[in-house]
Amino acid sequence: MKLRVKFSKTGVLKYIGHLDTMRYFQKAFRRTDIRVKYSAGFSPHMIMSFAQALGVGVESLGEYFDVEVEDDQEIAGMVDKLNAQMAEGFKVIDIVKIDDKATNAMASVAASRYEIDFYKTENPVTPALFEEFRSAGPIEYTKKVKTGEITFNIKDFVFELEYRDKGFYCVVDSSSAGNLKPKFLVEVLLKLAGKDIEQYPFHILRIDLLKRDSEGRFVSLDHE
């Protein structure tokens, strides 16, 4: 049986790296009676695949992994069993059965919804700034990669912007083809507003990972 598990990772656990998060969940399963399937071969490992690596230092309310289990247990029971094995800051929110042939979590990811919170200052972005961003021509952004630098139009990777009191919400591209770090968007917006990013410290919270449904709308990764 193939399952998709949604969990949150909050508080200081934002410092737990991606590989350690994977190892953490493997051990958590081993503390329950849920029997995860192992791969064959010389060094068998649990068949488990994470949707996307979350950056160190970012909290999230919507992370996902797919896992194959041997037995046919009740979903609600599994959520409780796993939550009994969580360190404070990790919580299993939901488990859904997925079709054996369903696209895996990693390939399904299209976008992320983030909340940006300027926790120390007044909000440097305004609804007017979003208008300016939308009506402007291409906004080039250059980032350093291993092979040098690449330049792209950041507007191609931003799908939604919504003002809120302490900052803003955004939906940005998180697909394997064009993942945009929300930090870059903040840089661009503050530059557009003529403000110094150093003066406006902010927290990033991932609210959810999204896929597109059959009509192209963004829905949660655990949407059935």
Binding site: L13, Y15, G17, A87
Partner: peptide, 19 residues
């Protein structure tokens, strides 16, 4: 990140005791 492996200092590990 200014500090390598911040996980060394945050506690919260499973089975750690909080009273």
């Amino acid at each position: 990140m200014a500090v390598e492996k911040p996980e060394r200092y945050i506690g919260h590990e499973f089975n750690s005791v909080v009273k």
